[in-house]
C-alpha cells in the first residue's frame, strides 16, 4: 500500500549549502552560465544548491550519491536528492542532462540497457533499490511509470488498465471492474471510454492513450509515479488535461515528472530540480526556483537565456 506508515528512518536534514558568493552580488559577468557549464564539463565538482525547504519534506525516494555509466560515458554524476512524498517533483534541464536517465534509474529500467553500471544507491521508502538482494520485479511492482510516448498495450482498454492485477494473478471480476473504473476515473477518462472498455486501446486519441497509461500506472497502486515527459507528444489541450490530472493525483500519490516544458514545471509541480550534464544544480520549491533562483545558471535556463 502506498500509504504505508513512513517507516523511513528519520534522516537528518541535509547540510545547508555552503555559502558561496552569489554572482549577482558581484555583478553580471559575461555569459556566466556558459562559463560554469564549461567548468562542470571539465569535471570541477560543484555542490548542488538544495533549498532548505526540501529537507523538511518527508521523502518517498532518496537518491544517494548516485552515478551511472553507459559503458565509459558517465551520464549521472554523484546525484543526491530526496523526492518528497505526496508532492509533484519536476526534473528540468537541457536535453541530455540526465533527467530521464535518473527517472529510469529509479525503477531500474536502465538495467535492460547493455553496459550500464551504477554506483551509489537509491531508497524507496527506506528500502534499497540497488542492493544486491533486491528482486527487481518486486521492486517495480511498487512504482508506476508513464513514458514520453503513450504506449498502451495492443489489447482492450479494460485489459490495459487491469494489466498489473492480471500479472499478479487477480481473477476476481468484481475487483478488476472496480479497479478499472476507479483508475479510469482518476485519469479523467471514465466518461469518455466507459461504453467502449472492450475496444482496442489503440483506437483512442493520443491524449486519451496517455491518460490510459496513467490509469494503468495508477491501477498498480504505486508508491511513486514516475513520468517521463508525458505531454511532449500532445497538443496544448491534451497537455492541460494531463496536467490537471497529475495535480489531482497528489497528495495521494508522489509524482516525479521529467519535463522540457518550463511552464509546465512552473504550473504543475511543487518542487523543481534543475540538472545539467548529469549533475543536479539546483533543487527547491518550484516557486523559489522559478521566481528567485539562487544560482545564475538556473536563472539563465528558466528565463530562456540558455537551453
Amino acid at each position: 500500500m502506498t500509504d504505508a506508515p513512513a517507516t523511513t528512518p528519520p534522516e537528518s536534514p541535509p547540510p545547508a549549502p555552503a555559502p558561496r558568493p552569489h554572482p549577482r552580488s558581484v555583478g553580471r559577468v559575461e555569459a556566466p552560465a556558459a562559463r560554469d557549464l564549461a567548468a562542470i564539463a571539465r569535471g570541477e565538482i560543484r555542490e548542488a544548491m538544495v533549498h532548505a525547504e526540501v529537507g523538511k519534506e518527508e521523502p518517498v525516494v532518496e537518491v544517494d550519491a548516485f552515478s551511472l555509466f553507459y559503458g565509459g560515458y558517465q551520464a549521472l554524476h554523484d546525484v543526491s536528492m530526496r523526492i518528497p512524498r505526496g508532492k509533484i517533483t519536476a526534473l528540468i534541464g537541457p536535453s541530455g542532462c540526465g533527467k530521464t536517465t535518473l527517472l529510469r534509474s529509479v525503477n531500474r529500467l536502465n538495467d535492460l540497457i547493455d553496459g550500464v553500471r551504477t554506483t551509489g544507491d537509491m531508497r524507496l521508502n527506506g528500502d534499497s533499490i540497488y542492493g544486491r538482494d533486491v528482486d527487481v520485479i518486486e521492486l517495480r511492482k511498487r512504482m508506476g511509470m508513464v513514458f514520453q510516448k503513450s504506449n498502451p498495450f495492443p489489447m482492450s482498454i479494460y485489459e490495459n488498465v487491469v494489466y498489473a492485477l492480471r500479472i499478479d494473478g487477480q481473477r476476481d471480476r468484481r475487483v478488476l471492474d472496480e479497479v478499472c473504473e476507479r483508475s479510469l476515473r482518476a485519469a479523467a477518462l471514465w466518461d469518455e471510454v466507459k461504453d467502449r472498455l472492450h475496444e482496442s486501446a489503440l483506437s483512442m486519441s493520443g491524449g486519451q492513450q496517455q491518460r490510459l497509461c496513467i490509469a494503468r500506472a495508477v491501477a498498480a497502486e504505486p508508491e511513486v509515479l514516475l513520468m517521463d515527459e508525458p505531454c511532449s507528444a500532445l497538443d496544448p489541450i491534451a497537455t492541460q488535461k494531463i496536467e490537471e490530472l497529475v495535480e489531482s493525483l497528489v497528495p495521494h500519490y508522489s509524482v516525479l515528472i521529467v519535463t522540457h516544458n518550463m511552464q509546465q514545471a512552473a504550473r504543475a509541480s511543487d518542487y523543481t530540480a534543475y540538472m545539467v550534464l548529469g549533475r543536479l544544480i539546483e533543487y527547491g520549491p518550484t516557486q523559489s526556483i522559478f521566481q528567485n533562483p539562487k544560482l545564475p545558471e538556473t536563472e539563465d535556463y528558466i528565463t530562456g537565456r540558455f537551453g
Binding site: 518486486e138 517495480r140 504506449n151 495492443p154 500479472i167
Partner: peptide, 20 residues
C-alpha cells in the same frame, strides 16, 4: 516501449513475453 511498460509495471520477463 511496450516491453518497458510491462516490465515497469512489475511483470516478469515471461509474463511480458506471453502477455505482451
Amino acid at each position: 516501449h511496450l516491453r518497458s511498460a510491462s516490465l515497469g509495471l512489475g511483470a516478469t520477463p515471461w509474463q511480458t513475453a506471453v502477455r505482451i
